[in-house]
Nucleic acid binder design. Structure first.
Lengths: 201, 201
DNA sequence: TGATTTTCGCCTTTTGTTTGCGTAGGATGG
DNA sequence: CCATCCTACGCAAACAAAAGGCGAAAATCA
């Protein structure tokens, strides 16, 4: 990405601030006013230069269509809803709250994904501890050995490893102190599969 | 997702608030009334524009059918350099490669931060396993109990828990099979402190 | 049937685009 | 050192297109 002149830097900074504050880009006139430019052509030329250098994008002839190109370190992240807590034997607090968590894009599955906060140490032997954040891909089926969010009898929700064995399903906690749950295939419903873990110290 | 004009932003904000408050979307007339528009056609056009730009969805010809599309953006992530591998007793392969990893902003410390891939199970009892990604904050000092990247005698680099004890430093692996390292304060240099962990399945 | 959404012209305002012209500073080559 | 060239930066006016707006009629859903 090419270097900017001073004027271009100033304008780019202004654009950044404006978009941050208003949620939409300024018009050419607003930019010109900010910098005391009486000619829109001047502003337009600046924007063109910024675009040529790859710092912004514009839709042709559209109002306030300047868009900041993710320059710096702006990597792609996705804001996933934090649906609540999951622990052994306790249902998810189905709070459709406004809470959300930023998760790197490549940590998410292809489908609908959400996040849950882990309560308890039932998966301690799988290196998932109390307070960790699990990224869950919304799926109805799982393969053997995958870590799943399982709904039991339409009531309890637990985080376990999933094993389909002859005639039944085994939900295996990763903690010697907790016994596995063995149930029929009818009474367990997979709600999602864990695809990632995040922890903060 | 395309940028909005000011009017479109205002209307979108109104929609957001209304749905948040009432649980259902406003009718065209209610929108028009809010903005002093006497023609429903105007409102309709705005909604169409918002839909074209991907901010809302609508069922055809249904009352109050505007639906906010989850704007799963705005989450900031930072592209951290992936400096290499770290394991017990093995120096970092100081590959200044172009590799980098996307990490959520709130997982990073305030200062310079980078990422390392973990090799081996020396920290297994701290729920960090082989292959995990640790986010490291570049610091020269650590508090007791923190997990650090430590440089020994200018040669070996290891991932250990840090304890300052009288007259010496104890570097404690989180694995019963590995003995702690006890050295003088002069021969150990803290390179960074682990502030986060990420794992992908 | 009544409430609501969609569509159709037609208009005004806002905004972005283009062309033409001019100044100043830095780099370049003779 | 000076002429020359290029680029950044600026002004003004004409132009083009999208955005924003109106009212009424048609279409649709419940």
């Amino acid at each position: 990405m090419q270097p900017l002149t001073r004027r271009q830097r100033e304008i780019l900074d202004y654009l950044t601030d404006f978009i941050e504050e208003h949620g939409y880009a300024p018009s050419l006139e607003e930019i010109g006013q900010r910098f005391g430019l009486s000619s829109l052509a001047t502003v337009h030329k600046h924007l063109t230069n910024l675009q040529d250098k790859g710092f912004i994008r514009r839709a042709w002839n559209r109002s306030r269509s300047v868009e900041l190109v993710p320059t710096r370190m702006g990597a792609r992240a996705i804001e996933l809803p934090l649906l609540g807590y999951v622990a052994a034997g306790v249902p998810i607090e189905a709070v459709v709250s406004t809470e959300s968590v930023a998760v790197p894009e490549d940590l998410c599955g292809a489908r609908d994904t959400y996040a849950l906060r882990v309560r308890g140490d039932s998966m301690i032997d799988e290196q998932i501890r109390d307070g960790d954040l699990v990224v869950v891909e919304d799926r109805k089926t799982a393969h053997n050995g995958e870590m799943v969010i399982a709904l039991l009898d339409g009531s309890d929700v637990t985080l376990k490893k999933f094993y389909r064995e002859d005639g039944h399903i085994r939900l295996q906690p990763a903690n010697d102190a907790i016994a596995p749950i063995i149930v029929s295939a009818e009474s367990v419903q997979v709600q999602g599969v864990v695809v990632g873990v995040m922890r903060r110290y």
